[in-house]
Computed example of a mutant assay.
Amino acid sequence: MRHVIEQAAALQRSGTRCVMATVVRTWGSAPHGPGASMLVAEDGRIVGSVSGGCVEAAVIAAAEEVFAGGPPVVARWGVGDEDAFAVGLTCGGTIEVLIREVNPETPLDRVSADLAAGVPVALVTPLEGRGSLAVGPGTVSGSLGGAAADRAAVLAAEGMLGRGESGLVSTGEEEVSADGRRGAGSPAGPACEPGRELLVQSFAPRPGLLIFGATEFARPLAHFGAALGHRVTVCDARPVFADPGRFPGADEVVAERPDRWFEAHENLIDPTSAVCVLTHDPRFDIPVLTRALRSPAGYVGALGSRRTHEDRMVRLRAAGTTEAQLARLRSPIGLDLGGRGAEETALSVLAEIIAVRRGGSGLPLSAGTGPVHGPWQPER
């Protein structure tokens, strides 16, 4: 979603008309969850996707109608519809998509700036009517056309943003609570206009990919990780290896002992962070792994053979690491893809990170019988 918002902001600044199509609901198997967007510019440029390529042609046709003066529309495509087969949506799911022109007052510059600064922000768009809001921690830009509607939307967006969720919320005769859900009103709550549905797109800071050990394996891992939307840090105690020119996709390359860097930046580690220890040297591995396994990082992995792993476990126990902490360690790192070399190893590592973050099994899809795409959930 980030690159779509950034491109939309650039087109808005240049005065180029564009239509944004955004998934608002999904049922069954769907490749993208609520909030996923596709941009259609008047000059023919296309950015992003709302399906696996199934309905994009139909979205472009709907966007052309909007460019011609048509109103915003909410279109639905599903496997049971003749239209779905005509456009190719045969994956077994149903998606509902809001298609509307990006207006000059849409606060995309604010959303884009917050994304660049790593500040959480939500874009709020009504399914009907004009106006939109950008909502961040204690800040609001734009308007839905009235103070009461704005207050209700802000409360809803703050709740969704706090949970890292995108999707629809309703404001009506009931009031919207601070967690973004409807319920009985309280005297302090805002009065809401009836029957309005709002699409909330939440943008959290990029998940961190922390690579300790500027080895040859680290180069494709940093490159692939950046391509998948991570904020990449490469850290190595050896200045000759910690050369930014070797890692053009990394956000930062640091010459420092891994454990010292981790200690100084521990406040940045959260459940979305992935820690990959590639130094393959116990002098560096054990101190940083000891800290990482005690941290809230959602993924901690270490490179090495099974023999190296057994030796590493002995050393970690001697350093005071508990069995519960050791159970979090992904070692040897990565999924078993049967790969060889740095690039294929990096692919297996990122596949495991995604599986852990998204709750995937890591098994071949052909071995299962359920939906290819399970219920959509935010990143962990």
Rank of each mutant, 00 (worst) to 15 (best):
S141P: 00
E128S: 11
G69C: 13
N103G: 13
L127M: 06
I99L: 12
L133E: 06
A58W: 03
F67L: 07
L123Y: 10
D109R: 09
P104A: 13
P126M: 05
I95G: 00
E82I: 00
T125D: 04
V47N: 06
G88P: 10
A58M: 02
V124K: 12
E65F: 00
V140A: 06
L127D: 02
G88Y: 08
L123A: 09
V97G: 07
V79L: 05
I99A: 06
V87S: 12
P107K: 05
G88C: 11
G93V: 09
V135W: 04
G48D: 12
V50P: 04
D83P: 02
R100F: 02
A116N: 12
E82N: 10
V119R: 15
T139V: 15
G118N: 10
C54T: 08
G70K: 10
G142L: 02
A122P: 04
G69N: 14
A57K: 13
C54D: 06
P120M: 06
T106G: 00
P107R: 03
D114S: 14
V66Y: 07
C91E: 04
S143N: 08
V55P: 03
A86C: 05
D83C: 04
I95M: 14
S143G: 13
E64H: 14
E82P: 11
G118S: 12
R76E: 15
G142E: 01
V87D: 04
